[in-house]
Write a protein that binds this DNA or RNA. Structure first.
Lengths: 212, 212
DNA sequence: TAGATTGTTAATCGATTAACAATC
DNA sequence: TAGATTGTTAATCGATTAACAATC
């Protein structure tokens, strides 16, 4: 699906709506109003209706939204209705921890379609080992394995000084979505989307609000 | 320092400016223009000048900003000019990995003032052990130890189902800044600031942009 | 039907950008 | 001085909110 002009602010809220719908569905709730949905993620009801209206008419006037229907529509919009293969580059302690966490989630939740299928590192001691059954491959095999394993997104957990070069290799392999845990900005073509998870930056931001 | 009315969008950019200034300082660069600063973090020069102007007049017309001076001013504004103690709650593999990562950074960088001083868990097998010399304490001692160890911020790496209760204990202890890695929304009073680092949410967002 | 809630338009709010006088 | 760049004001842009007709 492609609607292209929709703003990033809207897209950011879709996974939040989806999480509320997952919870409601698990609780056997069948209908939900824009008011309830907005309250649960912390925005107004008008914004919820406007966000959803970008993609179609999903509600019934006077009634609200059918939870399971809207949930499936959102999953389709977010490309989460099919398995989606992911690679992780940088098998340090953070990489292993995130990998385990992710694999656990995948194993426990039938409908969680984000599947970690490969780990990459350049350390010969790590190459050939595995984490919860997922192989650690030589980083030099990235451009070969990304297409052949049908990998669509990647997580970067290498040291800051290697993040840019890894990002470039990922881009060359055809990856369009990168979650970057390295504490540095990575520069990519504009059709590649990067989400930055920089712990330090967030802590520094929070420090601003401390009293005194 | 307190300017209170300054928007969150501005505050989010301050650590980015600071990182550029750190790099420039390390490279012996003495002056930097709003143009260069903006280019490096990906915003326009007018926005850089406007952001900084909220806090004072730091530049010289026709010249630019003195790197070391502006760097120290930003550190003061962000409360990063003094040591700031941090606790981490939830000593699972993610908690340990983040803790190690953080402690390494603290050990290597003289001026990195975010100091991890305590870990908390409710698992008797973990309590009393340590990670890189930092003790794991019983979670029940949180409200006692936060004030006595002068802890100002906290990182939550417990399972989603325990995040809210942990957040409430942190708030009760007087914590005003929380970095939450649990994949759930935590509700706190409005004088407490939360930064959410939800891996899954970010991956789901990136999936939207995949082709087809 | 009467009450409730959607989808959508218009109004408002806030953030970014453009422009330029001041001045180093 | 001439050139460069700041701090700041006004203009623009984009996102959120308010309001309400449509309708279940």
């Amino acid at each position: 699906m492609s609607w292209s002009k929709i703003s990033d602010a809207v897209i950011r809220r879709l996974p939040l709506y989806l999480r509320v719908l997952d919870e409601s569905s698990a609780d056997q709730v069948e209908l939900i109003s824009s008011q309830e949905l907005g309250y649960r993620i912390g925005v107004g009801s008008a914004l919820v209706r406007k966000d959803l209206a970008w993609f179609g008419e999903f509600g019934k006037q006077g009634v609200g939204y059918e939870v399971d229907f809207l949930r499936h529509e959102l999953r389709k919009i977010l490309n989460l209705d099919q398995e989606l293969n992911i690679a992780l580059v940088g098998v340090g302690s953070l990489g292993v921890a995130l990998g385990r966490y992710h694999l656990k989630r995948f194993a426990e939740d039938e409908e969680f379609n984000l599947r970690l299928v490969a780990l990459f590192d350049n350390d010969p001691r790590k190459i050939g080992t595995s984490v919860e059954g997922v192989q650690v491959y030589d980083l030099t095999r990235l451009t070969e394995l990304v297409p052949s394993l049908n990998i669509k997104m990647a997580i970067i957990t290498v040291p800051a000084e290697n993040a840019q070069i890894v990002a470039e290799q990922l881009v060359k392999s055809g990856i369009k979505g990168i979650l970057n845990f390295a504490p540095t900005k990575i520069v990519v073509p504009e059709d590649v989307h990067v989400s930055s998870a920089d712990l330090t930056l967030e802590m520094q931001r929070l420090a601003y609000y401390l009293p005194e």
